[in-house]
Structures are given as structure tokens and as C-alpha cells.
Design a protein around this nucleic acid. Structure first.
Lengths: 106, 106
DNA sequence: ACGATATTTAGCAATTAGGCTAAATATTGG
DNA sequence: CCAATATTTAGCCTAATTGCTAAATATCGT
């Protein structure tokens, strides 16, 4: 599983990375979490995030985990709350993927 | 299901549209179909597309349907083959969504 | 130490997704 | 019309996703 030392991931690894990011973005709740974080300055507590949805808190927790596994968020503990922060640069992967379709004039 | 005459979809409709596009992009096989189409000039027959994968043809047919439902492809019959063509502009929706995250300097 | 607050983990049920095989459909060439 | 070719549809099965509730964990204030 380790990489051969160097900053750029190899092909194989990169595929998995796309997988996680695109899958994370596929759910409307998760896109909304990202949007909300984006407009609320980049970070919010788990409770604040959970409060914007109708569904049970554990459901939101799970979505947060998916987003974090995809590298689109990360969190830090702050007393008894957890502050989630958006990782905007991770979205570059999507830009990168999309770019293939504009690079091609055909 | 009809829209009120006009070119821009309303909010509600737009959400569904994101849903379909992002979901379609979440599967690696479907991303690969789009990539391949992109580099093969934009259109290929169902058979050509199916032949790039190991799985059974009907599986590919299903992926094509998902992509088409998302508006990322469309097809035309051509004799007994069906030619699928990529709808690159549809990817603008994704660019549009991503743009919210760069528009925000914070 | 205790109770309140904040949040996650565990585990269950329903739904959806994605693979397969077999059968159906449409078009072409003889 | 018949056989071959190209492709989709139907239906089945398994695995993953997503929602829920109940229980666990961690931290804070007293």
C-alpha cells in the first residue's frame, strides 16, 4: 500500500482517490454539507452541521465520515465538540478530471 | 414534470439534475466510458464500448442508461448498431457546482 | 464523582446498485 | 422468410448504502 517516495501518487492509487471523492459527492446531503461549510466560513461543529438536516444525528455523522474518508473534510476536537473543516483543495481532483474533457478540442 | 417554458430550469428541477450527474460520475466504469468516448472522438457504438470492459454486455448497457439519464450521453440508431455520443456540455453542471467553492475567497 | 452536553459507534432494516444469464427485439443479407 | 448480428430488457442475486434507535464515550461544570 505504500508509495515509492515522491509527492505524486501513482495511477493505481489515484484511481481509488477519484473513487472516494466522486462517491462522496454523489449524495445530496453530502454536497449540502460541503456547500454549507463553504458559506459558513469553512468550519462548523458536528452539531451545527447536524442541525441543518431533518434526519437523525448519527446519519449526519456517517455522512461526515464518508466526506472525511474522501479527504474533503477533516476535523479537530475542541472541548466536547468536534469542528469539521472543509478541505477545498481536494476538489481540485474533480477539476483535474473534468479538464480532460475540455483539453480535447474534438 | 413539465417546465414553465423558458430555457433555465428552476431550483427544484436543478437539484435533481445534479443528483443524476453526480451519481452517474460516481462509478468508475461510467467515468471510464466517458473518458474513452472523449478520446475516441466523442462517439462509439454500444459494442465498441462494451468491448473495453470485462463484464457482461448487459452490464455496460445499464451503465450507458444511467449516463444517458443523467444527460451525459445520447444515442442514435444506425442500422443495427447504436452510436453513443458524449454530451460534454453536461459536465458544465459540475463545473458550475465546483465554482461555488472557488468563488468564495474565505 | 455526577449529571448534563456533544458526539460517535453498534447493529438492524429497507432500499438501491451493479453484476449475471436468458430471452426479446430490431436490422441486415441472402 | 430465415439466419446472423447488434443490442436491450427482464429477472435474479448479492453487496453496499442510508436511515433509524439504543448504547457508548468524552468532556465540562459543579
Amino acid at each position: 500500500m505504500e508509495r515509492t517516495r515522491g509527492s505524486k501518487p501513482q495511477r493505481e492509487a489515484r484511481v481509488d482517490v477519484y473513487e472516494a471523492v466522486f462517491t462522496a459527492l454523489a449524495h445530496p446531503t453530502r454536497r449540502r454539507i460541503l456547500m454549507t461549510l463553504n458559506f459558513e466560513g469553512g468550519s462548523m461543529t458536528a452539531g451545527e452541521i447536524a442541525s441543518i438536516f431533518e434526519h437523525a444525528w448519527p446519519t449526519t455523522t456517517r455522512h461526515l465520515r464518508v466526506l472525511e474518508a474522501a479527504g474533503l473534510l477533516h476535523h479537530r476536537r475542541e472541548g466536547r465538540t468536534r469542528v469539521y473543516q472543509i478541505e477545498r483543495r481536494r476538489l481540485d481532483l474533480v477539476h483535474e478530471w473534468l479538464a480532460w474533457f475540455t483539453k480535447t478540442p474534438a
